[in-house]
């Protein structure tokens, strides 16, 4: 186990190093950050002074050394966009995205287990067909459109939910639902198909012959066996969300989260903020994945890792 952990940590370290370098190179390569940060009307003298103040006039290698030093201590300098520490902005928006992920993806995970299992009990039955259809619809509709339609219906016509922004629990309903829909569809289809496979296996038939109850078979035995592929997909859904793919939902609902902030950092050409976000997130994702691997090992000791 210790050897495994050390190995994974080493791998994670390499990933973070690669990400860090790529981010640095890309933010310096696409145009001059100084030109992009200042208004069109800025004079040459202003550009030079700005470059001096932000250290963007130093040789690229020197900038890289400073940058690595900052990255190690998790200090990324001031955001060019908001002129305050990039990490302060990161810590401000991270919880907002975590709330959204927890409500949206968390809800999808719980709901998909029930929907998938119930659909699998009688494949081809009414419930199964209903669940499959809804899942397909959920996968095919663009999130952007779903979000706007929900706003139209619940906020504009019914007037029961606020259109956008962050506040009480009511503000969370539509963004979480919009975020959950495609994940719910993917997870439900996975649970359904692996459950159908599982229920056709010999040990389930034996259990039935023995007179074991349906719920025991489903939840105590079959569920346990589909847990690893299920959790793998859950991990992927959460990682995907953390990696900035909540941006569409956050934009539509004016939710001040990580994805939206990262997009702003790109649009406003703020290399320092972008670096902070990308590196911290890659760090979190690496740790999260190591945790998942450990969890798998605990669930199924047969899994060989390393």
């Amino acid at each position: 186990m210790t050897k495994f952990l050390l190995h994974r940590l080493w791998q994670g370290f390499i990933v973070v190093i690669v990400v860090t370098t790529v981010v640095f190179v890309i933010t310096r390569l696409v145009g001059n950050p100084v030109d992009m940060a200042l208004p069109l009307s800025a004079t040459d003298a202003q550009r030079a002074e700005f470059a001096r103040q932000t250290g963007l006039d130093r040789p690229i290698f020197e900038q890289f050394v400073t940058f690595v030093g900052e990255a190690v201590s998790l200090q990324f300098g001031d955001s060019l966009w908001q002129r305050r520490p990039a990490m302060a902005i990161f810590w401000e928006v991270l919880p907002n995205t975590l709330i959204l992920l927890l409500a949206g993806i968390g809800g999808a995970i719980v709901a998909s287990l029930f929907l998938g299992i119930f659909a699998a009990v009688r494949p081809g039955g009414l419930l199964d067909r209903a669940v499959t259809t809804v899942a397909l619809v959920g996968l095919s509709l663009p999130q952007f459109w779903v979000g706007l339609m929900l706003i139209m219906f619940f906020a504009v016509i019914m007037k029961v939910l606020p259109t956008s922004g962050m506040g009480g629990p009511a503000y969370l309903v539509m963004p979480a639902l919009t975020l959950a829909l495609p994940s719910l569809a993917r997870l439900t289809m996975l649970v359904r198909s692996s459950m159908i496979d599982e229920l056709n296996k010999q040990y389930v038939k034996t259990a039935r012959v023995k007179g074991m109850s349906q719920s025991s078979i489903l939840f105590r035995h079959a569920l346990r066996n589909i847990l690893v592929p299920f959790l793998t997909l859950c991990g992927w859904e959460l990682t995907y969300g953390l990696a900035g793919f909540t941006v569409v939902v956050e934009s539509v609902f004016a939710w001040p989260g990580l994805g939206y902030t990262a997009m702003q950092a790109i649009q406003r050409n703020d290399p320092f903020l972008l670096q902070a976000i990308v590196i911290c997130i890659s760090f979190i994702i690496v740790i999260f994945n190591i945790g998942l691997d450990v969890l798998f090992k605990l669930i199924d000791p047969r899994i060989k890792i390393g």
């Binding site: 706007l148 139209m152 906020a155 606020p162 259109t163 956008s164 539509v252």
Partner: peptide, 18 residues
């Protein structure tokens, strides 16, 4: 003064009376 980047969302907010 609220910050709403998406034009469609601003429109909805106006229509909803917010």
């Amino acid at each position: 003064m609220r910050f709403v980047g998406e034009p469609g969302t601003r429109l909805s907010g106006l229509l909803a009376g917010e």
